[in-house]
Simulated scan of single mutants.
Amino acid sequence: MAGKVGVLQEAALQRKERLKILREKHSKEASEGEEPEEKRFAAEEPVKFTEIKLRSYTPQDEQLKDCQLPKIEPVLVEDKVEEQLQASKPMPIIEEVDLTNLAPRKPDWDLKRDVAKKLDKMEKRTQRAIAELIRERLKGKQDDLVAAIAMTNQNEADSD
């Protein structure tokens, strides 16, 4: 660890010496009246001029007349305002109102929808069970055949 600190201190001292030499060099150039290096390089680059655009000035010089922009005709404000007014008018969305869509549903409509398939299965099983019970009674009592048929007809009427 001590070796690393010594190396870092040496590097810091070397940087300080280089900076000191650069400052002295810079101050000598400034005192002698020479331009610093950055300014010399900047002076060597070509100067770029922006293009002249004459909008409301009519030049007298022939060379500057090429820079004059053509005159623009103003747009009629009334036409633009009329277009915006036409665009902002609300279009009628629905002419007729369907009352069935607006009426609230019963609170249990989703339960009935979800249970409908299960009720269909249960209805089929119930019919099978009733038919099996009737067969058992018919085997047991041949005499009450008419009563058993009447009972099934009454059960079917009650289930509907």
Rank of each mutant, 00 (worst) to 15 (best):
A43S: 14
P70V: 02
K4V: 13
E34M: 12
K71F: 10
T126C: 02
N101P: 00
E78W: 11
Q63M: 11
P59L: 03
K124E: 11
L54D: 03
C67R: 03
E136Y: 05
R23C: 12
E123H: 06
E34V: 04
A87K: 05
D143T: 14
K53W: 06
D143A: 14
A147L: 07
Q142S: 09
I134P: 00
V75D: 08
E96P: 01
H26M: 05
V5N: 10
N101Y: 07
P107C: 03
E38R: 09
D160C: 03
A42G: 12
Q60L: 12
R18K: 12
P70C: 04
V146W: 02
K39R: 14
I149F: 07
L8K: 11
E156F: 04
L13W: 01
Q127H: 06
P74Q: 08
K4H: 05
T126I: 05
A131N: 05
V47A: 14
L138V: 10
P107F: 11
E51P: 05
E29Q: 11
Q63K: 15
E156L: 09
L85A: 09
A157G: 04
A116L: 07
A131W: 03
P90V: 04
E45P: 00
R15P: 01
K20C: 14
M122Y: 10
D144P: 00
G33W: 01
I52R: 06
I21Q: 15
L13H: 05
L85F: 12
K28F: 09
D144H: 03
R55C: 01
E82R: 13
E82M: 12
Y57S: 04
Q60F: 05
S27I: 09
P104T: 08
E37F: 13
E32V: 03
I52E: 03
E17C: 06
L102G: 01
K118D: 15
A87F: 02
E136N: 02
D79I: 10
P74Y: 06
D108Y: 10
V77R: 12
V97M: 15
K118I: 13
M151T: 15
E44F: 05
K141M: 05
E62L: 10
K117H: 03
K124S: 02
L133H: 01
K48T: 13
R125K: 11
E132R: 02
Q86C: 04
V47Y: 07
P104S: 12
N153L: 03
L8Q: 07
F49D: 04
N155F: 08
